[in-house]
Nucleic acid binder design. Structure first.
Lengths: 242, 242
DNA sequence: GAGTGGTCTAGACCACCGC
DNA sequence: CGGTGGTCTAGACCACTCT
């Protein structure tokens, strides 16, 4: 019943306490944490509250719990990074602008047809945009969408909306998964021309495929950036939350 | 008290139930969910158990809760992807091999010195590796580490260990953050030679900087892959867990 | 069997929201 | 004011692990 001490929840204080002990090295990876009932006694709080605090540490990956044995300090893991795909991303400090180029129905070929899992030659909507930073073209973007239901596509929406949002608004099925591939390529002549640079210029290529729950692809987008004008950034932390 | 019905926890069943209602469209984004006490009555379970189920939905981003008002079905968000940096990543289907090249102390210059936040010319450890797939060189990798404490670096460890792990093992301070930048560049002549390809070949470049809690950089690594031989992949889901 | 975590209850008080 | 979520309790029973 030491709840009086402060305004922040007791379970949170417990979590911070233990986190501190772990980060300072008092508790080292592999060490066992005091049992839940013990912690309850030490802190003068009920076991449910203790569990709630431990749940925070568990979520953030600071501890691991083993049934029938106890809670153990975990080893830090850092192999996962979070990549945020903001389309109005900064391009080397400058905010990118999107300029609608065209939308038309075109027959799909090769790689795109394969990714959409439809026969070559099938007509799909193709939406092109130009990405500019400080008036200079830095990238181009093509989205291929096989089916469009409901509302018509608005130019405005094409310029500003995030691809999954566009797909979500124009289809009945729920988006289940988005896969992205990030690779380095060379600019093809047509692309180089649009970007006002030479052929074979290095380029960063991001391909997104959006899938429905049944595994059917709902759309593919391919974005190409001039190499020296764009980079993706990620950050990861050893422990996620708290 | 309908717990008898099955082996899976009641709170989990509740979460699955609501999730189902959301995915099927019975509950649409923005809709309010039955109040916690109402749900408790409907399902014949205590409010704490209801809250536990709702916590699952909250974590996965399926609902948002507003104090004093209620729980609401959330709008799907898809802008965050998880990038897993596995160094033994597959390179176009083939598993990558790492071959130790050399470790030596070199003076740092320019960009690397700036990222490590130390004066140009300061000597640091530079560890080089060659990345091969199916016997062919596909990438090179240089790690720069200013300080090494404790155990000596083993060749074996250099070939197989993950960069943050190496840093963690050879420093006393805790890793606090890893920043990564992903960009497309051209191969420099020295790099092109090692990778047995032409200069100006497109390349994917990944730069990692590892920071301590006080913001001091603990190491920098720069990995360059032949463009056509490597790509990064990410997946994101509209809702994270459950 | 003693100790651990996993689940669950039936209350309680509080802070917040809207009327 | 009544309804909502946020916190917390003091029990309980279970499944699991180790000895």
């Amino acid at each position: 019943m030491k709840a009086i001490a402060s305004f922040i929840p007791v379970y949170y204080q417990l979590a911070e306490d233990l986190k501190q002990q772990i980060e300072s090295g008092t508790l080292k990876p592999g060490d066992i944490v005091l049992s839940e009932s013990q912690l309850g006694i030490e802190y003068g709080i009920s076991r449910m509250t203790v569990r709630r605090g431990l749940a925070l540490l568990l979520e953030s990956g600071l501890i691991e719990t083993v049934r029938g044995k106890g809670n153990f300090v975990a080893k830090p893991r850092l192999q996962q990074a979070t990549l945020t795909f903001k389309e109005d991303a900064l391009v080397n400090g400058e905010k990118a602008e999107f300029k609608f180029v065209e939308v038309k129905r075109v027959p799909v070929e090769g790689e795109i047809a394969a990714m959409l899992n439809i026969p070559e030659g099938t007509k799909v909507f193709a939406i092109r945009r130009l990405i500019r930073s400080d008036k200079n073209p830095v990238g181009i973007d093509i989205k291929y969408i096989p089916y469009l239901k409901g509302k018509p596509i608005l130019e405005n929406e094409i310029e500003y909306a995030y691809f999954p949002d566009i797909v979500a608004r124009h289809t009945d099925v729920m988006i289940n998964k988005i896969e992205r591939r990030i690779m380095a390529t060379s600019l093809q002549s047509a692309e180089a021309e649009l970007l006002k640079t030479g052929t074979d210029h290095p380029a960063l290529c991001v391909i997104q495929v959006i899938y429905a729950k049944d595994g059917k692809p709902l759309g593919v987008s391919k974005t190409i950036y001039r190499g020296e004008a764009f980079e993706l950034r990620t950050v990861s932390f050893p422990y996620s939350g708290i």
